[in-house]
Design a protein around this nucleic acid. Structure first.
Length: 137
RNA sequence: GCAGUAGGACGGCUUGUCGCUGGUUCACCUUCGGGUGGGCGAGAGGAAAGUCCGGGCAGCAAAGGGUACUCCGCUUCUUAAUGGGAAGGAGGCCGUGAGGCUUGGUUCAUGCAGAAGAAAAUAACCGCCUGUUGGCGUUAGCGUUUACGCUGUCGUUUUCAGGUAAGGGUGAGAAGGUAAGGCAAGAGCUUACCAGACGUGUGGUGACACGCGUGCUGUGCAUACCGGAGGCUGAAAGUUCAUGUAUACCGGCGAACAAACGAGAGGGCGACCCGCCCGAGCCGGAGGGUAGAACGAUGGAGACGUAUGGUGACAUACGUUCUGGAUAAAUGACAGGCAUCCGUUCUUCGGACGGAUACAGAACCCGGCUUAUAGGCUUACUGCUUUU
């Protein structure tokens, strides 16, 4: 099976409920500057009707860090591309029927080159994978 | 050629790999809602920004009158409309110039304007001038015994009466300004020029301009008055479907049950007065559910071209043409090539290397305004300079 590097609607975190639960507190987080990751396990089977993807991602860049919409969009796009190209390892390590709500939060006031951001995203995804594997065993 | 003024239009192109959001078509799957995959084609701006005006649209029953309130205020035109735009007019300021900036309804009535100033409006404190009372000096004449007295001249001082707005530390503003004549001294007292007001004639749709006449002439602010505009909210408006279901229960008020007359709780038309409207439920207690989807929502005062009218903004007619539509929010990421500009260097045709390519991202839709903006393009005009 060849992995396709997609990032469609189902892979985005859109539900108000899940987002509120994610940011309500008590969920684990770690950071690789300038990005902080927050995640929460979700059960894919309980949702009725249509199903989302196994991992749903939210990218957040605050107005506090970048005043102009152009700068915020630039950072979001960089992070999204990094995730899109490196997500498969994480997806394959997830057990059947278990999902993940994940958010990346930008922490810096400055722009970074795309290759640096990709390194950081890779680092975060690896750590996430390790954590999940440790919880399972 | 250099520097500048006022507009106008543009504001990167392209290849590859991997993606995102709509549209359309084909295949497959389907719980008939749709889903997956392939093909084709589309996918940010001149400001998308600020949210400063205006309009459409939607809801408030309809969106009525007056008052109040808020905003606007040179003229004419233009636009769906505005505080926008075009053409024009007056005053002030800046620039050698092309041009730029700025101000504007009325002043009949009422009030205020200092611990400044002589005085803040039918102005005499000082000053200036005339007359007058007394003193002193001067000198001329007369009386007379050298002294002195009387009358007068001139100067100075003083008392009183009057004239006078040329000058006086102030102030935003000082009795229109400047000059000459005039006068005892002065004054629109007279004259010339200039600024304004009023009347009048001519020109202009008009703001105004020009001519003539009348010596008619203090400033600022507030109230007031005149003309015009405005009902409120704002797409998180609002409509439908799905899920869930309960106005189930308690208290108070009331209609209907009943054809007409009548009565009507409780609300609404932003404030007040009028004039009205809705109405079978409403208010309080206690308590339950959703937070998903579709519509709204993208073809419109649309864009471009031509013709006609108009100085112009713009209008009319005809023709051509137009799939961005997201919603924790698509329109991209990376790599290369080209173009333009800048720097360094070799060289002085040109090449190499390095760097830069702005401001900035639709959120219901339009029309304006304002602000940000690398870089070059273009039209008209101005100043300086060179050549002929």
């Amino acid at each position: 099976m060849t992995n396709r590097n997609t990032f469609c609607k189902a892979e985005r975190l859109c539900s108000h409920k899940v987002i509120e639960a994610l940011f309500a507190g008590g969920n684990k987080s770690f950071s690789a500057y300038p990005i902080r990751a927050i995640y929460m396990p979700i059960d894919l089977n309980e949702g009725s009707g249509k199903q989302g993807a196994a991992v749903q991602l939210l990218i957040s860049v605050s107005k506090r860090h970048f005043k102009h919409a152009v700068d915020r969009n630039r950072v979001k796009r960089q992070i999204r591309e990094s995730y899109r190209l490196n997500k498969h390892s994480l997806l394959s390590s997830l057990p059947e029927g278990k999902g993940l709500a994940l958010s990346f939060i930008w922490l810096s006031d400055e722009h970074f080159p795309t290759d640096v951001i990709e390194e950081k995203v890779k680092k975060l995804l690896n750590k996430l994978e390790e954590t999940i594997n440790a919880e399972q065993s």
